[in-house]
């Protein structure tokens, strides 16, 4: 009789149950954010505890009959009864997802992966650099920082988008910008004349950020090239790689470091990331083959 090897599948922080088995969840709300981006609010699989997660973690969302996609959790970590994901409709799973109706069923696995270093950042200045839909994985972090505002130093949120119509969470950005204890800057690639904000690339905003470089934690999420240049600008400001965190994106499938699809150098993005301290992955940041 053939012997079958039993493989232990590791669990990520915050996970309960078998990490490979999707749990059924229903769509509570679907809200369109921009022309190609929408936010799903799901009933958590556990109606008592919700789905606790660390800011920066992701889940695998399963659209039955279509497939599974890794999506960062973009809701408030203090409100685990609302499982929120903001999704860009670009692929064979995410496009039909945007046409789902309230009450429709999906499968969810997770949460998976590492989160933003909220504990290490305590007492320090915070610089958040987001681009495009990269703001979504950072929103739970922003909720956390604002919820425990007195625990952190200066907080700066820099956000770059393609055009004014592509700005994600516009009302929330305006609301955060209206606070006296947070600096919010939004910059867009190009605009018509009715735009009164900044125009250019998000890295251009870094030169005017107020922070104590030696006592700053910078966290960035967006297109990889944007994060690369943001990191260089942060280095120029005096923020070393050890104080910069990036959220990487790769082809995550099993989400527990077993299948190898998301291998990034010696790491797996799904289990060792998606949030990495920059100095730990920088050697691979500019290698084309990875």
């Amino acid at each position: 009789m053939e012997q079958i090897e039993v493989v232990h599948v590791p669990k990520a922080e915050g996970m309960t149950g078998d990490p490979m088995v999707p749990r059924p969840v229903s769509i509570r709300e679907l809200q369109h954010e921009t022309h190609d981006t929408f936010t799903l609010t799901l009933e958590p699989p556990d109606r008592d505890q919700g789905l606790p997660f660390i800011p920066g973690q992701f889940t695998m969302l399963y659209l039955f009959g279509n497939g599974e996609v890794p999506i960062s959790i973009s809701g408030d970590p203090a409100a685990p009864m609302r499982l929120v994901h903001t999704i860009r409709a670009v692929g064979s799973v995410t496009r039909p997802l945007q046409d789902m109706q309230r009450g429709s069923m999906l499968g969810v696995r997770g949460p998976f992966g590492t989160g933003w270093p909220v504990e290490e950042a305590r007492g320090k200045d915070i610089v958040i650099v987001a681009g495009g839909i990269g703001l979504a994985p950072l929103r739970p972090l922003i909720y956390h920082l604002l919820g425990q505002r007195e625990d952190y130093g200066r907080v700066s949120i820099l956000y770059g988008a393609r055009s004014p119509a592509d700005i994600l969470y516009r009302r929330e950005l305006e609301s955060w910008g209206g606070r006296f204890d947070v600096d919010v800057s939004v910059i867009i690639d190009h605009a018509a004349t009715d735009w009164y904000g900044d125009v250019g690339v998000v890295t251009a905003l870094l030169g005017k950020v107020r922070c104590d470089a030696g006592n700053t934690i910078a966290m960035t999420c967006g297109p990889e090239i944007m994060m690369r240049f943001a990191a260089r600008e942060l280095n120029d400001l005096g923020v070393p790689d050890e104080q910069i965190y990036v959220s990487m994106e790769r082809n995550m499938q099993c989400a527990v470091g077993m299948c190898g699809h998301c291998q990034y150098g010696p790491t797996f993005v799904c289990k060792d990331g998606p949030v990495f301290r920059l100095d730990r992955i920088k050697p691979f940041f500019s290698i084309r083959e990875i």
């Binding site: 681009g131 393609r162 250019g200 297109p223």
Partner: peptide
């Protein structure tokens, strides 16, 4: 900055 803008990094 112009070269980065030309890449349209936030596009699909």
């Amino acid at each position: 900055a112009t070269q980065l803008q030309l890449l349209d990094v936030y596009g699909a």
